[in-house]
Design a protein around this nucleic acid. Structure first.
Lengths: 140, 140
DNA sequence: AAATACTTGACTATTTTAGTCGGGTATATA
DNA sequence: TATATACCCGACTAAAATAGTCAAGTATTT
């Protein structure tokens, strides 16, 4: 069970942006250098963040990305959703509605995975981007 | 973020076993048929469960596996541990001790992943095999 | 003896992940 | 208005992880 780099980098990059004045565009190039994340990969990530209304872009010289909302109002769950990251128990659920292929035995653990999914989503639902920021400021 | 089949099947198989009289060996062949899991794959899984003292084996005709403890005393966290399944944030932590490669900026999110890891492990730590069983019995 | 069932390492196909490439378009500034 | 900067975005690929199989056993019961 592991987190992929896409969502991990997304959170890192957005946390990085949050440290700067909010309406000031931050270029991916700068984030790339500061966070040691490939620029090309960041572009891919921000394409999705933009599509999901988390950031907006400013083109041209001195352009970059700007957070669409205050970090206080950006839940980590939104970021994960933007990158198609969710908890999956795999199998079991997708192929059927109720009894998992009709074989009732197959679903002994069905409720468990549902519960886990809700539990984890809950973690991200209750975390804001601003929560990371204050942690960071405490450290430095 | 997803659960792998190994730990998923392990939980399913053990829950299946729990439904039978405890000192009665249950053969992998039967579990395989009931839960639609490949026998060869189950063998691999039970090899690890055995090494981790969760089940013991009874060889020969009418043999099979037996739970080493009462399902009330088997935590899901043990099962996951037996299969090397754990939450990983990947990168960030392994390569360094404190400042993540010395670049302090790289670790804006470090504490977050630690917290998540603890949070999820907590879920499994508080679930017993017997919890699944009663759920199952409620359903059927 | 024969059948059943566990033992265990090695192997392989498939899928997923991480990350790159390429060929754009838009905008600010000199 | 030329040029550099920075976003745009689909397609691609190498590497790693996962899922599952194979093979060649050994132990026990009936």
């Amino acid at each position: 069970m592991k987190l992929n780099t896409k969502s991990r980098y997304a959170v890192m990059a957005l946390a990085d942006m949050s440290k700067f004045p909010l309406n000031n565009p931050v270029s991916l190039r700068d984030i790339s250098l500061r966070q040691s994340i490939s620029l090309l990969y960041l572009e891919q990530i921000f394409f999705r963040l933009k599509k999901n209304d988390i950031v907006k872009s400013v083109r041209g010289t001195n352009g970059g990305y700007v957070l669409k909302r205050d970090p206080k109002n950006i839940k980590l769950s939104e970021i994960f959703k933007a990158l198609d990251q969710r908890v999956k128990t795999v199998g079991c659920k997708k192929e059927s509605k109720k009894g998992c292929n009709g074989k009732s035995a197959k679903c002994i653990t069905h409720e468990l995975w549902d519960e886990l999914e809700i539990y984890i989503n809950n973690f991200f639902e209750n975390k804001k981007l601003s929560d990371l920021l204050s942690t960071e400021e405490r450290i430095n």
